[in-house]
Write a protein that binds this DNA or RNA. Structure first.
Length: 572
RNA sequence: GAUUAUGUAGCUCAGUAGGUAGAGCACAUCCCUUUUAAGGAUGGGGUCCUGGGUUCGAAUCCCAGCAUGAUCACCA
């Protein structure tokens, strides 16, 4: 990336100066009245042509077709585009045609934001168009936008480079309307979920993101430090333990949309920060929670897409209740034909090897089952499916199964081959909970970096007594991927985490002047790639001298060539 | 972290047995003047990701790096 402005950027800056010289403020402070939007006009005008005869609307210029005294342009507002018709003699009723000839035709560009007043009519071509009577520049754009064109559903020159789309999401949002739709849908999703939960009377709460002890999930945390307390704090990996404290405190149902942070790998399913909705309801169990999840997700599908049947990638997924239910052992048996339910750790490890599942010595029996399941079953579960009854070893916060030894009352919902939620009857036996934490500590000693740590305050809380409680964590990003048919988590995060953009250390004109470089040589030096002091200091004076002579020709500079001594003096 | 692909104009992409780089859109100037991815003509615009190496000569070949994507690993 050059710090040089491109030709088009220079032209726009010059236009900006001319606009100011015309006495026009390119960034006016006053509000601009908007009483009509493109979507509304397109919808209502065909039904009643007497509407919209005195409108005022605003948006970004996305295309222009200029032909002398008449011109067409399109502006884009949040919901869509509207064609504008400009006629020179209507925009400039007097003798002075500057506003049209100079401002509109020459000094405005694609990307500028304008406001227009006028009336809606049909053109000869039958397109709904705003006949502009007056227009106002609201913001001059200095960077050219990628121009995406579309005809009959075919998109030309799409702005598609993922790096640029994610790093400059604002550009992505301007030129790719389907991206705006995705994020609107994501918000519809959370709105739908929130209203569902509120209608049930559950209380939305906020709990700490900075936690002295991270807990509630198996994951590596981000670590930070609080200066005045001089303590280590962790960014939360889950909010489970806090929400359960609130159940102890007497709330019957609490939930939180929680940004969680996990210091792990990134790929199309994982971002270091992601959103979960966690819900805890007193006096309920996991069977009850399964029904709630079905009901809630079905409603979300209808609220966001108008149907329970969604095309996601190659698959047609139907969220209509009831969903299929398998126990974990049943699922493994179903997909591999092997009954692992009675196996001990050694037999399990043997089976895993036979199935081609990679294992390592830190894995206990529970982890082994999880690996086998994850490898052989999860990717094959396309339709929403509940997997129930997990091994106790991998669920230190879940209640022991009421009838099956060695298992806990837990379920996950799998959809499109990925987990979308996780839930259990919460463990409320403080003695058992302490033991479970202790065995996690053992796993930690065996080298499991994700083993949970013991949270004394949480234990103290449940020692006061926590009602039987059903808990749920549902991945909002994963759910949003499904609901918006997105292939990557980055497509449902407005600002996905990216490696930092590398920035050249830039020398300002003043820096160059301070070193003794005459102003006229600064562009040439920049062109030669000398953008920071170290580069200049490290340059070979002879080479730089030659380069500059070359640049002088190339840039058609009307100054005397540099001398070698001059260049040596800059380098010092 | 591993493998692999990609990185050329503001955007989307061509291209070259290794010999001073092309198209469309965008931009500029002029002509036309109610157009619809959309008129016509002319023109400007590039450290061909960065750094090394091979070579008379590298955007092209080799190595390393950076960025991004994909797959795997990790990751409920």
């Amino acid at each position: 990336m050059s710090i040089e402005l491109s030709e088009q950027e220079i032209i726009r800056r010059e236009s900006l100066k001319e606009i100011i010289n015309l006495g026009i403020d390119p960034y006016p402070a006053a509000l601009y009245e908007v009483n009509a939007r493109s979507e509304e006009i397109h919808k209502k005008f065909p039904e009643d042509n007497s509407l919209f005869q005195e409108i005022s609307m605003a948006g970004r210029i996305m295309s222009r077709r200029i032909m002398g005294s008449a011109s067409f342009a399109e502006i884009q507002d949040e919901a869509g585009r509207m064609q504008l018709y400009f006629n020179r003699d209507e925009v400039c009723p007097g003798e002075d045609k500057t506003l049209y000839n100079t401002l509109f035709k020459r000094l405005l560009d694609i990307g500028d934001i304008i406001g227009v007043k006028g009336y809606v009519f049909y053109t000869k071509m039958g397109e709904i168009t705003v006949h502009v009577k007056e227009f106002t520049l609201l913001s001059k754009s200095l960077k050219p936008l990628p121009i995406v064109k579309e005809k009959d559903g075919v998109v030309y020159d799409a702005f598609s480079d993922p790096e640029q789309r994610y790093r400059q999401r604002y550009v992505d949002l301007i030129v790719n309307p389907q991206v705006r739709e995705t994020f609107k849908k994501r918000t519809q999703l959370t709105n739908s979920m929130r209203s569902f939960l509120n209608e049930k009377g559950y209380l939305e709460v906020e709990t700490p993101i900075l936690q002295p002890i991270y807990g509630g999930a198996a994951a590596r945390p981000f670590k930070t430090h609080h200066n005045s307390l001089d303590v280590t704090l962790y960014m939360r990996i889950a909010n489970e333990l806090y929400l359960k404290r609130l159940i102890v405190g007497g709330f019957d149902g609490v939930y939180e949309f929680s940004k969680d942070f996990r210091n792990e790998g990134m790929d199309r399913f994982h971002n270091p920060e992601f959103t979960q909705m966690e819900l805890y309801v007193a006096y309920k169990d996991y069977e009850w929670m399964m029904n709630l999840v079905e009901e809630m997700v079905e409603k979300i599908a209808i609220d966001t897409n108008g149907t329970t049947e969604l095309k996601v990638g190659e698959n047609l997924i139907n969220f209509q209740r009831p969903w299929k239910r398998y126990t974990m052992y049943e699922a493994i048996q179903h997909f591999t034909g092997i009954d692992v339910s009675e196996m001990d750790e050694a037999q399990m490890a043997e089976t895993a090897k036979k199935l081609g599942v990679e294992i390592n010595p830190t894995m206990g029996r529970g982890k082994l089952i999880d690996e086998i399941f994850g490898e052989t079953c999860e990717p094959k579960l396309i339709q929403p499916t509940f997997i129930t009854d997990y091994p106790v070893e991998m669920s230190p916060l879940a209640k022991k199964h009421r009838s099956k030894a060695g298992l806990v009352e837990r379920f996950e919902a799998i959809c499109n081959g990925k987990e979308i939620c996780n839930s259990f009857s919460e463990l409320n036996d403080p003695i058992d909970q302490r033991k479970r934490f202790e065995s996690q500590l053992e796993l930690g000693k065996r080298g499991d970096e994700e083993a949970m740590v013991l949270d004394e305050d949480f234990l103290r809380a449940i020692e006061y007594g926590m009602p039987p409680t059903a808990g749920l964590g549902i991945g909002i990003d994963r759910l949003a991927m499904v609901m918006t048919n997105s292939n990557s988590i980055q497509d449902v995060l407005l600002f996905p985490q990216m490696r930092p953009e590398k920035k050249a250390a830039v020398l300002s004109d003043d820096d160059f002047l301070a070193i003794g470089v005459p102003a006229e040589w600064i562009p040439a030096l920049r062109k030669a790639g000398i953008n920071d002091v170290t580069l200049l200091k490290a340059a070979n004076p002879n080479k730089l001298f030659n380069d500059l002579c070359g640049m002088r020709k190339k840039l058609k500079m009307e100054v005397a060539p540099p001398t070698l001594d001059m260049v040596k003096a800059w380098i010092g």
